[in-house]
Design a protein around this nucleic acid. Structure first.
Length: 365
RNA sequence: AGGGCGGUAGCUCAAUUGGUAGAGCGGUCGCCUCCAAAGCGACGGGUUGCGGGUUCAAGUCCUGCCCGCCCUGCCA
C-alpha cells in the first residue's frame, strides 16, 4: 500500500517535470539550442499480435527498455495498423492487445518511465491523418517500395485505401507524439523518408516560415539477426519462431529441431557456426559462452546434440525471468489495462496539442 | 447498380459428353544421420461458399442468395 502510494507520488513528480520540459521546449527555446540536456522524444510502435518471439525480445524490446532510461519514450499499440491487413478478423486484434503489452512489460519496458498507449484510443491521430492526406499525392504512396511487394505477397484483397495510406498513418503516429527519433529497421527507412517529405510539404504550405511539425529523424538500428528453427529469419509468418510465451519444454523441443550446418554430418566433423541457427541464439542466450561454443563447434569437438542441449538450457535460463514476469502480468490483466489507459490519456494530451497547432496552421480554427 | 471472372484439403490449383473429388507444397510419423537439414517411404487431411431444382447419378447443368477480385469516359 505504502509502496504504491510512493510510486504514484513519484509518477506525479515526473509528470510535472515533463510538463515543464514541454513548456521549455517551445520553438524559441529550441532555436536557442537550449535543448541539449533534454531527453529526446522517441516514438515506436508494434502491431498487436498475440505471440511475440525471441526475435522481438532481443531485437526490439530490450532496446525499448533501454529507451525508457535514455529517452522520453512513447510506445504505441498500433491496432489501426493491424486493421490494414487484418480487417477481416477484428477479434484477433482485440485479443492481442493486453497480451502484447504484458510481454512488453515483462521484457522490461517501464510504464513509469515511458508512455504506453493505444493508437485507436487517440483519435487525434486519425484526424491528423485526414488533414495531412489532403496534401499527399497518391503517387508518393504508390512508389513506397514495400507497397507493391506487399500487395503481391498478400493478394489484391488487402489493397485498400487504408493500406495504401499506411505510411501516412505511421507519420501521424510519430507527428502526433512530437516524435523526434524513430528507431527503424532497414525496411522502414523508406516509410520514414516519405513521412519527412510530408512534414516538409506541410510546413512549406502552412507553416508561414515556421516548423509546425518536426521532421522525425531515423535511428538506424541494425538488430542482431535472430534465426528461427528452419534457419531463416525468425518470424511468425514463417512458423519458425520460439515464442517468449512458450514453456521450457516446448523451447527445448524447438531447439532440438533447429537446422545446423548441413555439412556437419557426424560428430567430429568441423562445423560452421556462422551459418548455424544455434549460434545466432547463443549470442544473446549467453554471450559469455559464445566464443567457446563457436571454437568447439569449429574443431568438431562439440556435437550438435550436446550443443542443442546446452543452448536450450541457456535460452530457458535467459528467458526465465521474462516468463515469470509475464505470468504475473497475465494473472493481473487489470494492471496491464491500467497501464494502457494511463498511457493513452497522456498520449492524448500530447496529440491534442499537436492537432491544435496543425488546425491553426491550416486556418481551421 | 451493372458486366466479366472466380469460391474445391492449411496454401496454390486439377477433375473429360454429368459417372467413385485428385496433385504439388505444407503437416504428422517412420528410415537414414551425433541432432537437424537433404534424401527415401508412409499417413492423415473435404458439408466442393449456402439453399432449392433437373437427373438413376451434380464439383460439373438450371435457379436464388452470400462472399472475393477486375472493369464500367469527363463533371465529386
Amino acid at each position: 500500500m505504502r509502496a504504491r502510494k510512493r510510486r504514484v507520488a513519484a509518477r506525479r513528480g515526473r509528470r510535472r517535470a515533463r510538463v515543464r520540459a514541454c513548456k521549455d521546449g517551445s520553438l524559441a527555446a529550441r532555436r536557442d539550442g537550449a535543448m541539449s540536456e533534454r531527453r529526446p522524444r522517441v516514438m515506436s510502435g508494434m502491431r498487436p499480435t498475440g505471440n511475440l518471439h525471441v526475435g522481438h525480445l532481443v531485437g526490439v524490446l530490450t532496446q525499448w527498455a533501454a529507451y525508457c532510461e535514455s529517452a522520453d519514450a512513447f510506445f504505441e499499440i498500433a491496432d489501426l495498423h493491424a486493421y490494414t491487413t487484418g480487417f477481416s478478423d477484428p477479434q484477433a486484434i482485440r485479443d492481442a492487445r493486453e497480451e502484447m503489452v504484458a510481454v512488453w512489460l515483462a521484457a522490461g519496458v517501464d510504464p513509469e518511465r515511458s508512455t504506453i498507449y493505444l493508437q485507436s484510443g487517440v483519435p487525434e491521430i486519425a484526424e491528423l491523418q485526414t488533414l495531412l492526406s489532403m496534401i499527399v499525392p497518391v503517387s508518393w504512396l504508390e512508389r513506397v517500395p514495400t507497397y507493391k511487394g506487399q500487395i503481391e505477397a498478400l493478394g489484391n484483397e488487402v489493397a485498400t485505401y487504408g493500406f495504401l495510406g499506411y505510411p501516412l498513418l505511421q507519420l501521424c503516429d510519430i507527428a502526433a507524439m512530437r516524435g523526434e527519433r524513430v528507431p527503424v529497421g532497414r525496411d522502414q527507412v523508406a516509410h520514414l523518408e516519405f513521412g519527412r517529405e510530408v512534414v516538409r510539404r506541410f510546413n512549406y504550405l502552412y507553416g508561414d516560415g515556421r516548423d509546425v511539425l518536426t521532421e522525425p529523424q531515423p535511428t538506424l538500428s541494425e538488430f542482431p539477426e535472430v534465426l528461427g528453427i528452419d534457419g531463416r529469419k525468425m518470424s511468425k509468418s514463417y512458423d519458425n519462431a520460439i515464442y517468449i510465451a512458450d514453456d521450457e519444454e516446448t523451447t527445448t523441443k524447438k531447439v532440438r529441431a533447429m537446422i545446423t550446418d548441413p555439412l556437419k554430418i557426424r560428430r567430429g566433423d568441423p562445423g560452421r557456426p556462422q551459418i548455424c541457427a544455434l549460434f545466432a541464439l547463443w549470442k544473446f542466450a549467453n554471450p559469455f559462452r559464445v566464443d567457446a561454443v563457436a571454437a568447439a563447434c569449429r574443431s568438431g569437438e562439440l556435437g550438435c546434440v550436446q550443443d542443442k542441449g546446452d543452448l536450450a538450457e541457456a535460452l530457458n535460463a535467459y528467458l526465465r525471468p521474462v516468463r515469470d514476469r509475464l505470468a504475473a502480468y497475465r494473472a493481473d490483466r487489470g494492471a496491464v489495462t491500467r497501464v494502457i489507459e494511463e498511457g493513452t490519456a497522456r498520449a492524448r494530451a500530447v496529440a491534442s496539442d499537436v492537432l491544435r497547432d496543425v488546425k491553426r496552421a491550416m486556418r481551421l480554427v
